[in-house]
């Protein structure tokens, strides 16, 4: 089953590109990209079971913890794209990871659940409770998602880090786009998908 952000990510990636997928899970997105775009892919994942599944699926998977930093693993510009799909919100230092990503690859693709989505705002602002939704299913006390942000938060971080946003897409759970979504993405986008690169000075 494709996750809501996959089609857009795939659409942004060139044929035969070199792709690094950080937090690749069992490698489903990499397999999708290999099938659709003939990419040469490497995944990075910390969880034993997922690494084993990735290896069994004939993928190149490096077992490492993204929180330990990724810069030492790879040469500068050794990939065309680094993808961080639904992972950045679980990283201890997202700002450091973004910087490292764009040393390693010319472009980064980041997808995350939008904390500004109206259901999240409703649950927090009106009901007064931390949101639990399809995209953010875990209770506050036991969740890998420790760094939640909205579209505006992410964009202001990029601004501060000297990162240029090349593309932005938002989708809801069913991957639909609508005029409402386009007009008010930070309200109606459940998932945010960004294509970024280092700003050329």
């Amino acid at each position: 089953m494709n996750r809501p952000d996959w089609d857009i990510v795939t659409g942004w990636i060139r044929e035969d590109a070199r792709v690094l997928d950080l937090g690749c899970g069992d490698g489903a997105l990499l397999r999708h990209l290999i099938a659709e775009r003939s990419v040469r892919g490497v995944g990075m994942e910390v969880d034993d079971e997922r690494v084993a599944r990735g290896v069994a699926a004939d993928l190149n998977v490096i077992q490492a913890d993204l929180d330990d930093g990724i810069r030492d693993w790879f040469e500068a510009r050794s990939f065309d794209y680094v993808v961080v799909s639904q992972t950045i919100q679980a990283i201890r230092h997202p700002e450091r990871l973004l910087g490292e990503m764009l040393d390693i690859a010319s472009e980064g693709i980041v997808t995350f659940p939008n904390m500004g989505y109206w259901r999240n705002r409703w649950q927090l602002g009106v009901q007064g409770m931390m949101p639990t939704t399809k995209a953010l299913p875990n209770p506050w006390y036991n969740t890998p998602n420790i760094h939640l942000c909205t579209l505006r938060d992410f964009e202001s971080l990029c601004e501060g880090l000297g990162i240029e946003i090349l593309d932005r897409a938002v989708v809801d759970q069913n991957r639909r786009s609508s005029p409402l979504l386009r007009a008010l993405p930070n309200w109606f986008g459940e998932h945010a998908i960004y294509r970024i690169r280092k700003r050329v000075v």
């Binding site: 084993a52 290896v55 190149n60 998977v61 490096i62 030492d72 693993w73 040469e75």
Partner: peptide, 17 residues
């Protein structure tokens, strides 16, 4: 692993607890 990645080889790496 880093050397293999740097020379563009196909490599997987498992660090077993």
């Amino acid at each position: 692993v880093r050397a293999l990645l740097a020379s563009g080889k196909s490599v997987s790496y498992a660090e077993v607890e």
